[in-house]
Amino acid sequence: MKAARLYEYDPEMNTQLRIEEVPAPTVNHPDEVVVKVGAAGLCRTDLHIIEGAWKDIMDPQGGLLPYVMGHENAGWVEDVGSNVTSVKPGDAVICHPHRSCGICLNCRYGHDMYCDHGLFPGLGLDGGFAEYFLTTESSLIKLNTNVTPLEVAPMADAGITAYRAAKRAARLVYPGAYVTVLGVGGLGHIAIQCLKHLCGARVIAVDREPGARVLAKELGADIVLDGGANLIDEIKDVTGGGSHVVIDFVGELGVENVCWKLLRQGGELIVVGYGGTIEVPTLELVVNEIKIGGSLVGDYTELVELMQLNADGLVKMHQTEFSLADINKGIDDFKNRRFTGRGVIVP
């Protein structure tokens, strides 16, 4: 099969993935499933992997490379292990990115993304930037008959990461409150749609790219701002003191030390993007009682919920397609923000 493989980490992002022929994965355990990839989302984490930011976590001993990235996958079941009963060859599926064991205490509590024995195809083992990839039955969700893998692949990670953060924010606010979304990219544009259907809060979208601001307005954001030098004052003014919740989908480039300043007293910051370092005077935490916390990828049931919202036409992915042969162009366009929404690789 054809696959795009990473051969070296490069902080300067000058390296390119190599398109080459490699053996297709095969079923070796009773619960395994081979999926024919219909589409695979291109994620900012992929850029960080290439940069080497994940090396100490996913490749601490070295020796992983070359390997196949791609952790946002959807396609059709190609082959199944002897114990697999919920899917069969030909079924259209989306793949939760985390292969969980199902038996550790975290899994029993429903926190499968905390699984003690979890594996993450695309981060540490071969993923979906290829014609086929290997996963397990417990990671698969059958798609509604009117939904294609191409329409939803990035929701396997970007979608449920945004949904998890939006769901958390929705629990914290009331009708008329304000939620600010920083970054209207592959995750932010999903969060806006989710917030509009999960709560009655007013949604403020912030992005420096004109195209992203247009998209935010089309998706229902109540207020759209360009993130200029006066952003803090603008937010304080339009909200009457600050946002009740801020979701930061950037997490670097200086945004990480602006986002918490957008909160009102008692507000909460949900950090999703990463790469920077947050510096907050402890006096600010005490006097303003702001809360700061991270948000990881959503769990399996959250992906089920998001697929229902998608099937009902309430949350859609805005994406730009690239062939597997053009994956390096897709990575470069993504890095330089030449498209809005999500990039999708179509083998």
Rank of each mutant, 00 (worst) to 15 (best):
G183I: 05
G183L: 08
V184T: 15
V184S: 01
G185I: 10
G186F: 14
G186S: 15
G188D: 06
H189L: 13
H189K: 10
H189E: 13
I190Q: 10
I190L: 05
I190C: 05
I190R: 02
A191R: 14
I192D: 10
Q193L: 09
C194R: 00
C194E: 03
L195V: 14
L195H: 08
K196G: 12
H197A: 04
H197W: 00
H197F: 07
L198D: 11
L198M: 04
C199E: 14
G200K: 02
G200H: 04
A201D: 06
R202D: 01
V203D: 06
I204A: 09
A205M: 05
A205Q: 07
D207M: 08
R208D: 12
E209F: 02
G211E: 15
A212L: 00
R213Y: 04
V214A: 09
L215S: 13
L215M: 09
A216S: 12
L219I: 01
L219C: 13
L219F: 05
G220K: 10
D222Q: 11
I223T: 08
I223F: 14
V224A: 04
L225P: 10
L225H: 01
G228Q: 07
A229Q: 06
N230P: 00
N230Q: 13
L231I: 14
L231V: 15
L231T: 04
I232H: 00
I232D: 00
D233G: 09
I235M: 06
I235L: 02
K236E: 05
K236D: 08
K236P: 01
D237Y: 04
D237H: 15
D237E: 06
D237K: 14
V238Y: 13
V238L: 08
V238R: 07
V238D: 07
T239W: 04
G240C: 09
G241F: 09
G241P: 11
G241T: 02
G242F: 10
H244T: 09
H244Y: 12
H244R: 13
H244L: 08
V245K: 11
V245W: 10
V246Q: 02
V246N: 11
I247N: 14
I247C: 03
I247Y: 10
D248M: 04
D248A: 11
F249H: 08
V250H: 03
V250A: 03
G251Y: 09
G251I: 02
G251R: 08
E252Q: 15
E252V: 11
E252G: 01
L253T: 11
L253H: 13
L253C: 12
G254F: 11
V255T: 14
V255M: 15
E256W: 10
N257G: 07
N257Q: 08
N257F: 03
V258K: 14
C259K: 01
C259F: 05
W260G: 01
K261I: 01
K261D: 12
L263C: 01
L263S: 03
L263R: 00
R264V: 00
Q265C: 02
Q265A: 03
G267Y: 04
E268T: 12
L269S: 09
V271T: 14
V272S: 13
G273E: 01
Y274V: 12
Y274H: 08
Y274E: 01
Y274W: 01
G275V: 00
